[in-house]
Design a protein around this nucleic acid. Structure first.
Lengths: 143, 143
DNA sequence: ATATTATTGCAACTTAGTTGCATTTGGGCA
DNA sequence: TGCCCAAATGCAACTAAGTTGCAATAATAT
């Protein structure tokens, strides 16, 4: 992990009141480096032999979500995808685009998205937009 | 099942070329009656003692999705939610609103929703919008 | 009526995620 | 600096949604 990222991770973690532990810094580091939503499995793979116990990673993620510095972005293929919350507002993450060909997810952090107008009486607290299609690379190959 | 619904289910099923079987008509009937996305578990519960084998229901749903008369609306609580495709366009289902208090899902079928504008080079084939918050009933109780 | 092929049922399996409990450790404090 | 203890971790066993292989059954074309 680059030292800049390690520092960012520590700063972020310290802001939460959670203890500064190896597994938390490691997971935060991976999320920083990813810059997009990733799964428990991908986090484990990235940490390789240095990966903490499976359950610990789940609990670390849980605590970071609780502390609101990590979000559950979306479910896909039965697996939760986690990302840093630093580019999200309270009521809405940016839209996520997943390429159905290469399975890569992109954050459309700059795409503004008006809160959907809801019928009378409904209070919308959170809005999630998932896009699917072909990314520039895969569009090209397919034609 | 009401006979009108049974007829609708048969008509829909026959339009697909799939064989007209008991489990398929039963599952379609439940989806018709529900009028909103429901899970495998809810389908099984609704059919009660008349429910086909668990695997059969999964395969029925799979074949109906394949035939494009049923959609996988969204994943929630690790369970796929299925609904009839009759109120969806190719590129987009209507938005779905799930009340976080009573866990009921509502279809906002009349809410028009412009396709999200994507960065250059991305081809968006499908858009899914999930809303969460409080339904009129639960808003009232809470607030 | 029969043959063909799709469909169903059953048992065993896979996989993401959870739970209980014993052990370890971060960080405040004497 | 070392001690304390709640918070955090690790391990094993578990849960639950969904899948797979294969044998038995049933819908439809002839």
């Amino acid at each position: 992990m680059k030292s800049g990222i390690r520092q960012e991770a520590q700063r972020l973690l310290d802001s939460t009141g959670l203890r500064r532990t190896g597994p938390r810094l490691a997971v935060l580091g991976v999320l920083f480096e990813a810059g997009r939503p990733i799964t428990h499995e991908q986090i484990t793979a990235k940490l390789a032999e240095a990966a903490p116990n499976k359950v610990t990673i789940y609990r670390v993620l849980e605590s970071l979500v609780e502390a609101d510095i990590v979000h559950k972005a979306f479910l896909r293929d039965r697996a939760q995808h986690f990302e840093l919350a630093n580019r999200c507002t309270a009521s809405q993450c940016h839209p996520h685009f997943t390429c159905t060909s290469c399975e890569t997810t992109y954050c459309f952090a700059d795409v503004a998205l008006p809160m959907t107008k809801s019928p009378m009486g409904f209070t919308v607290l959170h809005q999630r937009v998932q896009l699917e299609g072909l990314c520039p690379n895969c569009s090209e190959k397919t034609g």
